[in-house]
């Protein structure tokens, strides 16, 4: 469905942030994309959804294909109309608007299907029904994340991209968001789930990618990734005895050195 081929991305004509990444999201699946801070996950989303220009960024190589059509560098409104919606990093709800107005803003491209999408969103998030007339800025963090997801669903997307939806949420809410992502997927929407919470993402994904400083370093079956020692050490903190998180490469390097020393 979505196929990113060998993508290179540059900010301000100089900062090379994506160094030829490729990834696929098959129809109907959940694909997880993991990576540390600054790996380039959000940049990947911007490259796919046409928000590069806002950040003085450019795709310098490679392509983005969606359902067989080349959508590299297309306008964000075209991308949304073609069926790719996103839940932006940091929620980015319209805080001065009411919940209902946020959802209506989400449905801008989907005038005909608006009421059907509204029903779907309200069924997924009963909390938003209660709060529909509230000013969005006064919602709790969890409610805001639900609103951000609901707003994206108003576009009735074929593919939903979520950029760190669990960020800053309590464990119970993370679980709730995870269940909702599964439900959305079961309703027929493909999902690209970007996360630092590897446990959460890999527990529901059909395929996982791991990205490091603008490159894909690993990909495969989520269960295998979860069992991988390096992934465990770096993302789940299971083996690691050092408190501060180091780069994925550093972990490998450090282990190699340990082996060499012993």
């Amino acid at each position: 469905m979505l196929s990113v081929e060998n993508l290179e991305f540059v900010y301000n004509d100089v900062v090379l942030v994506l160094r030829g990444i490729s990834l696929q999201v098959p129809t109907g699946k959940i694909v997880a994309l993991l990576g540390a801070n600054g790996a380039g996950k959000t940049t990947t989303v911007r490259a796919i959804t046409g928000l590069a220009a806002v950040h003085e960024g450019d795709i310098t190589k490679g392509s983005v294909q969606f359902e067989g059509a080349d959508i590299t560098g297309r306008d964000p409104s075209d991308v949304v109309r073609l069926g790719i919606s996103q839940v932006m990093e940091g929620r980015r709800i319209f805080a001065e608007l009411t919940v209902l107005e946020n959802l209506r803003a989400g449905a801008y491209t989907n005038r005909a299907g608006m009421s059907a999408s509204m029903d779907r969103v309200m069924a997924l998030f009963p909390r938003l029904v209660e709060k529909r007339s509230a000013t969005a800025g006064y919602l709790s963090g969890g409610e805001q994340q639900m609103l951000a997801i609901g707003r994206a669903l108003m576009q009735n997307p074929k593919l939903l991209i979520l950029d760190e939806p669990s960020l800053g949420l309590a464990p119970l809410l993370v679980k709730q968001i995870r269940d909702i992502v599964v439900e959305i997927n079961q309703q027929g929407t493909s999902v690209l789930l970007i996360e630092q919470n590897a446990n959460m993402a890999l527990s529901i994904a059909h395929h996982g990618y791991i990205m490091e400083t603008g490159k894909m370093v690993m990909d495969g079956d989520p269960a295998k990734l979860l069992k991988d020692e390096d992934v465990q050490e770096f993302y789940l903190g299971l083996h690691g005895d050092e408190g501060d998180r180091k780069s994925f490469r550093d972990v490998k390097h450090y282990k190699r050195r340990k082996r060499w020393l012993s």
Partner: peptide, 8 residues
């Protein structure tokens, strides 16, 4: 930017 992301 968020408005653009909605397809506005």
């Amino acid at each position: 930017e968020a408005a653009r992301a909605q397809g506005i």
